[in-house]
Amino acid sequence: MIIGVISAFIATIGFSIIFHVPKEELIFCGSIGALGWLVYLLCIDFGSSPIVANFIASLIVSQGSSSLAKIRKIPVTILLIPGIIPVVPGAATYQTMHSLLLGDYMEAASYASYTFQVAAVIAGAIALTTMLPRILGTVNK
């Protein structure tokens, strides 16, 4: 698990460099990515389903990056795009393709539906945290 979180940290920083994140923010991008993956692994450890774990991890990533963006006075996109990467269903996409390749359509359909569920859950989490200040009425116009 420690290896996983450290890897997530370094991998997210690498990903941020590909997308030209400014040097000063790299460390924050990495932390957000690692935090998301840590939360995901913890949720799985506590026996929650992968979908729920993804939802909670994306909530944390999304909320974390918007709070941090406010403090650092930068657009939230800069932290959110690299930070969300560890929870994006890359592995499931590959499994879908792999099962199709082997002609196992049942397996492929189940992986595909898993991919879409994870994508939908991430979308929901981002939407929720974006709207949270409005729901709670703490938005300052």
Binding site: G4, S7, A8, I10, A11, G14, P86
Partner: peptide
């Protein structure tokens, strides 16, 4: 890119 591919594998 190389480093992040490597560490995603570990992750």
């Amino acid at each position: 890119t190389a480093v992040s591919a490597g560490f995603f594998t570990l992750m």
